[in-house]
């Protein structure tokens, strides 16, 4: 999923302070799972903001709504009838949701309420880790299911590098060396012969460096 983190409330206040009628828009997908922008977070933030502005003698109306997704036309259409009632939308969706909402409602400011961090997994409640950088050409088949693109600081393709110590990355003792993890897993699967094979040069053309990317599937387009 896409992992996001809450923005500090003073930053949010600074962003919205010039508006009077604000729609706080949550998303039921990834940001709900990582407890940054779902219905509950919308409720808490809206309540806090209402109290803050009231306390500071400013009349601000903050209404709440949480959509199934903010990255799909059909759900974003649900606010078409009401969007003109607001001076601004504070979206607690990931950057995709913020932009898609902004695209659709051209004249309404759409402001981000969370920091979108990475594609990751829930290690345990309150801890999320990065697992994928969406490089566009998955190599997990040859790396024991562990991604050196997202989990190795140097994105080494034939690792480990000389900095790997006791299974930890030279970044520090809190970071596992991705290549140690790869070796451990290949060993466990009895596939160490794969480790001996040199990885070919990775084709980075599908990565972000080539500019914004598009996936097009003619077979399913209508």
């Amino acid at each position: 999923m896409i992992v996001a983190d809450k923005k500090p409330i003073d930053e949010v206040i600074e962003t919205i302070k010039d508006y009077e009628k604000i729609l706080l828009l949550g998303c039921n997908e990834c940001v709900t799972v990582c407890e940054a922008g779902g219905k509950k977070e919308v409720e808490v933030l809206a309540s806090a903001l209402r109290m803050y502005f009231l306390n500071n003698g400013k009349k601000v109306s903050i209404e709440e709504k949480t959509l199934e997704r903010q990255c799909d036309h059909e759900y974003l259409e649900e606010i078409r009838d009401v969007i003109d009632q607001y001076d601004a939308v504070l979206s607690l969706a990931c950057g995709v949701g913020v932009q898609f909402t902004a695209d659709k409602y051209l004249s309404t400011p759409v402001l981000p309420g969370v920091n979108t961090c990475f594609l990751g997994a829930t290690e345990k409640r309150g801890v999320w880790t990065e697992r994928c950088q969406a490089c566009g050409k998955c190599i997990l088949a040859s790396t024991g299911g562990i991604c050196p693109v997202s989990r190795c600081a140097k994105r080494v393709m034939n690792g480990p590098c000389g900095g790997s110590t006791n299974g930890k990355c030279e970044l520090g003792p809190d970071t596992d060396c991705a290549w140690q993890l790869i070796i451990n897993r290949l060993e466990a699967m009895g596939k160490m012969d794969e480790y001996e094979k040199l990885s070919p040069l990775k084709d980075w053309a599908t990565d972000r460096a080539g500019g914004p990317r598009t996936v097009e599937r003619e077979d399913i387009q209508s």
Binding site: I9, D10, V44, A48, L49, M51, Y52, N55
Partner: peptide, 8 residues
């Protein structure tokens, strides 16, 4: 914590 962040 939320209350404190808004000055209460």
């Amino acid at each position: 914590e939320v209350l404190e962040s808004i000055g209460i």
